[in-house]
């Protein structure tokens, strides 16, 4: 029971991270090609300025939750994905610093460099996160002691000795790039005005179409790579609501964007991300990290779970702390609701 609860609590943290930091990563990607004038750039950055580092906290809090609820998984996955994680850390550093630096530097060439760095780091991060999730779904070559070490790529095939990147995880990366770019575009339609908002609204349609296509491809690919991915769904047919939710939220994005209801379109995109991630978690449950070298080496819930007292105590403070955190977050977002005001941007 505790295992079930904590599995889904960690899933909630991941969804929270992707939904929230997802839009500022997407805004970063769009910053590369959608935004043209200096005042548009300032509006774009001001739309995420007050919230981006709060959004990134979900990654830290999620990592911490994973650490104490499933120490074996944390230890195995973090050391096994050593190289890509270090690259992710470097990208997070470059992204955060270039964003902050831009507020302080008014020399054109430097600004252009920082804008490029910020956009590129954002795009690469979305790809890495997508590929990371695909790695977990595909499985890794776990040794008998529960550890592994993955090279960046091998023969690009998701076989028993895969690399971080193979054709399957690349699909995951591209899917995440498109999904979060779309998510960011919808955020910009809410937060900005004028030509920029119009342009953002205009690219929603093609992105939506691409995303729908990629969603179908990735679903097929997942079933191809892991035949048992649908077992949970067939055992509990009511959970087929998840793929239905994915399809419905895609339609919602398209429809609400067409009717110029940006908030509803953005919320549909949040739902899309929620259903996709929840669906992926459910296809794994109760496995946490499948092994490509035989199911007996899978890291399962019962193998990785912390001691009972740890989890019971954790449940108390976690619920209390997250309830508090959600209050601050709602408060801050409500203070900054509405279109970006360029009167005072930055600090």
């Amino acid at each position: 029971m505790m295992g079930f609860i904590w599995f889904w609590l960690v899933a909630v943290m991941i969804v929270g991270y992707v939904v929230l930091d997802g839009f500022d990563l997407g805004v970063g990607v769009l910053h590369l090609f959608l935004v043209r004038t200096e005042s548009e750039r300032r509006a774009t950055l001001a739309s995420i300025g007050p919230v981006w580092d709060g959004n990134e906290v979900w990654l830290l809090a999620g990592g911490g939750t994973l650490y104490f609820a499933f120490p074996l998984l944390y230890a195995s996955a973090f050391s096994g994905f050593y190289l890509p994680l270090m690259i992710v850390l470097w990208l997070l550093i470059l992204r955060g610093v270039s964003l902050e630096l831009r507020n302080h530097i008014d020399v054109g060439v430097w600004r252009a460099l920082l804008d490029g760095l910020f956009g590129l780091a954002s795009a690469l991060l979305t790809i890495f996160f997508g590929a990371a999730l695909a790695n977990v779904l595909r499985g890794v070559p776990l040794q008998a002691d529960g550890y592994f070490f993955l090279p960046l790529w091998t023969n690009w095939q998701p076989g028993p000795q895969p690399g971080i990147l193979d054709w399957y995880t690349v699909i995951g990366g591209v899917l995440a790039l498109v999904a979060l770019t779309l998510h960011g575009a919808l955020w910009l339609t809410i937060k900005t005005s004028g030509e920029l908002a119009a342009r953002a609204r205009h690219i929603v349609n093609p992105l939506c179409l691409q995303l729908a296509t990629l969603t179908v491809i990735s679903l097929g690919a997942t079933i191809f790579v892991r035949e048992d991915s649908l077992d949970n769904y067939f055992n509990y047919p009511v959970t087929f609501i998840v793929p239905v939710g994915v399809a419905a939220s895609l339609v919602g994005i398209w429809l609400f964007n067409r009717k110029a209801q940006p908030v509803k379109a953005f919320l549909s995109s949040c739902l899309y991300l929620f259903f996709m991630l929840a669906g992926a978690c459910w296809s794994l449950y109760p496995t946490l990290l499948p092994s490509t070298t035989g199911a007996e080496r899978d890291i399962t819930l019962s193998r990785a779970i912390s001691g009972p007292h740890t989890l019971a105590v954790g449940l108390v403070w976690w619920s209390f702390g997250m309830a508090l955190a959600i209050c601050y977050i709602v408060f801050v977002y409500s203070r900054f609701r509405g279109k970006v005001d360029l009167g005072v941007s930055g600090h």
Binding site: V51, G54, G62, T65, P71, Y74, A75
Partner: peptide
């Protein structure tokens, strides 16, 4: 792997109790 059940706890609490508070109000 061995100590996560103990020290993972305060590390996660830092995120949950402090970073959300700090980042929200700093914004």
């Amino acid at each position: 792997r061995l100590s996560g059940g103990v020290i993972g706890q305060p590390l996660a609490m830092e995120g949950v109790f402090s970073f959300f508070l700090e980042s929200a109000f700093l914004g």
